[in-house]
Every structure is written in structure tokens, then in C-alpha cells.
């Protein structure tokens, strides 16, 4: 199947969305909340495009990440109305997260100079893209979700208390595009979502490693021997190199 994006003919599979077809053809459509490995939610609204296809009287604005391709679809990614709408979206996102590098890069890349919007005083940099929630869901923990409606909508653990289901993997904090989830690692503990996790130590050198709860999770969820998680990377490398050296000596000297 072929579709046309900004006048360019692009090959698309029937399960493609406009965004995946465009990305494969090296056509850049800005997006913030899209992640190829996670469920699509279309919250950031930055990937909006205009489409024209059979059955439509006039061009329609849709999110590229959620819309499936159709035969003979015409997609316009850089029209004036799309630029204006994207700029407003970006302005509103930047009012929530004014210091975000990702948003600043996006605005520069797309030639959208942000207008000065009043910064929301209680803004905590969260743009509600739900990447953290989806990552947590993918890990099988479901420790955080959306709380509140309207203005008070935020990402939080249940009842705003330290979540029981959290294992301290830190995927939410690392995947966050605006770095607004606080995770602190000290040599003994990791703190995230108000919960403290004791960290395991390397059996050989005592270096701090993953949280104890995360190790238990890893042993239970992944089909790998328990002793794989016992040592730090450095000690594992040392052990294998010593074994390897022994082997070389044996081979050389019979």
C-alpha cells in the first residue's frame, strides 16, 4: 500500500500508523509521548497532521501516532494550520515544563519559537505524557497511574502513599522526557516515589548494586540463575578474565 506524505510517495504496511510509516521514510514528525515498544496513548498532541482520504469531505486533523494508514491517504505534516496548532501545544507544554531540554530542542528543531506563556506556579515539569505509567505497566508492576482530573491531574502512586507494588527499577524516572521523577541513589538506599529501597551489595567487593526488591523481582520474573545477580560487573569481568587466563596457560603449556 502506498500513501503520500507531504507529496512524497511512501510505502506502508496495513498495520502501520502514519507516524511509523513516516519515520521509516525518514520524514520527521515531532512527538513526545510516542514509544515504539509501549502502548500508544496520543497524549502530547505534537504529532498532529492533516489527512485527506476517501470518505472525507475536507482535510481532517488527526494524531499521526494513533491513526492507521489507508490506501491513497494524503498526509500533510507542515501546513500553516498544523504549525499554529503545534506551536500552541508546545507553548502549553512549556508552561508546565519550562526547563525541559527535550521541549526546547523540539521547538528549535521545528522552528517554533515559544511565546512567553506564564509558567504555572506549581508546575513540577510533568507534561502528563504517561511514558512512566506505561513503562511501569510493561514491567508488570502498575505502581503508578494518573490521579485527579482536570487541573489537578497528575501522576502518582495509589492514595499518594509509597506504592507497595513498586520494586524500585527506576524505569519511570529514566524514561521521563522532562526528568521530573525524583530518584535518588545513595550507596545504601534508592529512594523513589517516597519509598526507600535497600540496595544489594556485590558479594566480592561490596559495591552497591540494584535494590533488594528489584533483585527479587528479576529472579522471579526472568528465567535466569540467581547467582547471575550476585556480583558487580567489574568483579564478573575479573572472574571471567582469570578463568580465561588459566585456560590460555593450560593450552600453551599443555
Amino acid at each position: 500500500m502506498y500513501i503520500r506524505i507531504d507529496g512524497k510517495q511512501v510505502e506502508a504496511k496495513k498495520w502501520d500508523t502514519i507516524l511509523s510509516a513516516a519515520r521509516r521514510a525518514d520524514i520527521d514528525i515531532p512527538s513526545l509521548c510516542h514509544h515504539p515498544a509501549l502502548e500508544t496513548v496520543g497524549t502530547c498532541r505534537l504529532c498532529i497532521v492533516e489527512v485527506m482520504m476517501e470518505g472525507l469531505a475536507e482535510r481532517k486533523v488527526v494524531t499521526a501516532c494513533e491513526t492507521k494508514v489507508a490506501a491513497n491517504m494524503e498526509v500533510y505534516t507542515r501546513t500553516e494550520s498544523i504549525r499554529k496548532a503545534r506551536r500552541t501545544t508546545l507553548d502549553l507544554l512549556m508552561a508546565r515544563a519550562p526547563h525541559s531540554e527535550v521541549l526546547q530542542t523540539l521547538s528549535v528543531k521545528n522552528g517554533l519559537e515559544p511565546r512567553m506563556h506564564p509558567v504555572i506556579p506549581e508546575a513540577n515539569d510533568c507534561v502528563l505524557c504517561l511514558l512512566c505509567v506505561r513503562a511501569c505497566e510493561q514491567m508488570g508492576c502498575n505502581a503508578i497511574s494518573v490521579s485527579g482530573r482536570g487541573e489537578s491531574r497528575s501522576i502518582a502512586p495509589p492514595f499518594l502513599s509509597p506504592p507497595d507494588a513498586c520494586v524500585g527499577c527506576g524505569a519511570c524516572a529514566r524514561i521521563c522526557p522532562t526528568n521530573c521523577i525524583e530518584m535518588t541513589d545513595s550507596p545504601t538506599t534508592r529512594t523513589i516515589w517516597g519509598k526507600s529501597f535497600e540496595r544489594t551489595r556485590c558479594e566480592s567487593c561490596g559495591a552497591p548494586m540494584m535494590p533488594v526488591a528489584y533483585r527479587q523481582y528479576a529472579i522471579a520474573q526472568r528465567d535466569l540463575p540467581e547467582d547471575y545477580y550476585a556480583q558487580c560487573q567489574e568483579c564478573k569481568r575479573k572472574e571471567i578474565s582469570l578463568k580465561y587466563a588459566d585456560l590460555v596457560v593450560k593450552v600453551q603449556h599443555g
Binding site: L38, C169, G170, A171, R174, L224
Partner: peptide
């Protein structure tokens, strides 16, 4: 998704 599980998994 940056879960970091691959690092300790490598023996």
C-alpha cells in the same frame, strides 16, 4: 524502556 535489567543479568 530503561529498566536496567540487562546490566545485572549478564554473567
Amino acid at each position: 524502556i530503561r529498566c536496567g535489567l540487562c546490566e545485572p543479568a549478564c554473567p
